[in-house]
């Protein structure tokens, strides 16, 4: 475990705190550790560290924060941001840290990571999300092949989960939005 701002990472040439600030558009130093975010966070009780500790580790530029499960399981409910006295958008901080962690090859919650990737893949392929293939892909990711069949099969027969979803007409131009200059600049850095 490295505490302090001295750690260097292969994908970034500034210290970790600056990179978190840059990607999240937040200033983690604004946080004064009051714990209000943690008090209202619905997922905090089920994580390794609570949101205000994510902020603390980010302030220290500690690489330990990249290993946290909390950053992946923030559900972006915005309760913390709504109540934070210093206007820190913790969800954006968590999301920025996951992006850095991913670049560093550290994925503390592969299933949460799979969800966002499969989701974006599904959108990119069709322009819309197809729930059934997404749910199936997630079943493979979680190795939970039978868990939801009680719900999925009735829905399937009610025609709620069609096998072939709708594809948008202007798919070609739509897909170009994923390769925009700006998206690339940040994604590939």
């Amino acid at each position: 475990m490295v505490l302090g701002a001295t750690a260097r990472f292969k994908s970034i040439d500034v210290d970790l705190k600056k990179e978190i600030d840059r990607l999240s558009g937040q200033k983690v130093d604004m946080c004064y550790l009051c714990g209000k975010c943690t008090a209202g966070c619905p997922v905090a009780p089920y994580q390794d560290i609570p949101p205000h500790i994510v902020l603390r580790l980010a302030q220290w530029g500690s690489s330990k924060v990249l290993e946290s499960k909390m950053i992946w399981n923030c559900v972006a409910c915005a309760t913390c941001y709504t109540r934070c006295p210093n206007d820190v958008d913790v969800a954006k901080v968590c999301e920025a840290i996951t992006q850095i962690a991913k670049r560093e090859g550290i994925v503390a919650d592969p299933v949460a990571s799979a969800l966002r990737e499969k989701f974006v893949e599904s959108v990119k392929n069709n322009g819309r999300v197809h729930e059934l293939p997404l749910a199936m892909a997630m079943k493979v990711a979680t190795k939970d092949y039978l868990g939801d069949l009680d719900v999925g099969i009735p829905m399937f027969f009610q025609g709620k989960f069609p096998l072939f979803g709708h594809q948008i007409k202007d798919l070609n131009n739509f897909q170009k939005l994923f390769n925009s200059k700006k998206a690339k600049k940040e994604g590939d850095k």
């Binding site: 966002r116 974006v120 322009g127 939005l177 925009s180 940040e186």
Partner: peptide, 24 residues
């Protein structure tokens, strides 16, 4: 010909991409 809004997931991968696809 509306397309997916990006929902709760796309912005976690890339905020600018999410804004572009919702912006469409």
């Amino acid at each position: 010909d509306w397309s997916c809004c990006g929902s709760s997931q796309a912005h976690k991968v890339d905020r600018d991409m999410a804004a572009a696809i919702a912006g469409r």
